[in-house]
Design a binder for these strands. Structure first.
Length: 257
DNA sequence: ATGACTCGCAACGCGAGA
């Protein structure tokens, strides 16, 4: 089973690119972020025509997450459990083929420090709690999305240039490490030790052409999921296309149980 | 270097993104 996560930066603006990538890469499950549309306006038909079922959790203009799957989608949970006061559409959970998936759009948190950074850290604490609850099921779990976290200095072109940013601050990194310490694995790093592989390149300053990026899109796997991991990589091709998202898909392959 | 980011909104620039 091929599973991918992709922050598309508007599903409507990105629809041709997304359809092309789905048809070519053929993922079984896709976790999307920053769909930027209300559910009624989500371009379902074009995606369903490629053989996908959909679960969507969006809002007007900002945020928004979705799950695409060739197999049926069950037990859909919109919103991060235990964080009912959150009005932003950043979390969608569902079961596919016995695996629990979450599509996560973790808050950016800039400027930091400040209320937006406080919101990010609070959101991460709630995610930690949910991740711990799910782990107790001792089943395959895939928590994937745009974490807005640069885990280590190997995951950024120039750590000094990002000093003080919400994506790299010590408090941000410490909370991300706590997810790992619960027992989740960063799927990309399980199979790829190569430093300076990125999933995001800013639109500005020729960042893509100069390969000045950051790795912030992650698939975190429970022990029962990582035991089935056979491949993991970043597909840079969509980032080089016309009208590209600033993020590119990160994908894994899980062996059939 | 004399300069080129993109999205939704319903605006004719702004806020947000990272």
């Amino acid at each position: 089973m091929k599973v991918a996560t992709w922050n598309v930066n508007s599903i409507k603006a990105r629809l041709p690119n997304v359809l092309t990538w789905l048809a070519g890469a053929g993922p079984d499950v896709v976790l999307l972020q920053e769909t930027k549309t209300v559910d009624d306006a989500f371009p379902r038909l074009e995606i369903e025509d490629l053989g996908y079922n959909l679960a969507v959790h969006g809002q007007r203009s900002y945020n928004g997450v979705a799950i695409l799957s060739k197999q049926p989608i069950e037990d859909i949970q919109a919103g991060l459990p235990g964080n009912a006061a959150d009005e932003q559409a950043r979390y969608l959970e569902a079961t596919i083929a016995g695996i629990r998936f979450a599509s996560i759009y973790l808050p950016n948190g800039n400027p930091a420090p400040g209320p937006k950074y406080d919101y990010k850290l609070d959101w991460m604490v709630h995610l930690l709690s949910r991740a711990e609850t799910l782990l107790a099921t001792e089943t395959p779990i895939v928590l994937a999305g745009d974490y807005n976290v640069i885990p280590t200095d190997d995951d950024v072109h120039d750590a000094a240039a990002w000093h003080g940013d919400a994506l790299i601050r010590p408090e941000t990194r410490a909370l991300f490490r706590r997810l790992l310490h619960l027992g989740y694995s960063d799927a990309f790093r399980v199979l790829n030790a190569t430093p300076h592989r990125y999933s995001f390149w800013d639109y500005q300053g020729g960042a893509w052409q100069k390969d000045q990026g950051i790795r912030i899109d992650h698939l975190l796997l429970s022990p029962q999921a990582v035991d089935r991991l056979t491949a993991a990589d970043i597909d840079q091709e969509p980032r080089g296309k016309a009208k590209a998202s600033d993020h590119t898909p990160v994908w894994i392959e899980l062996a059939t149980a």
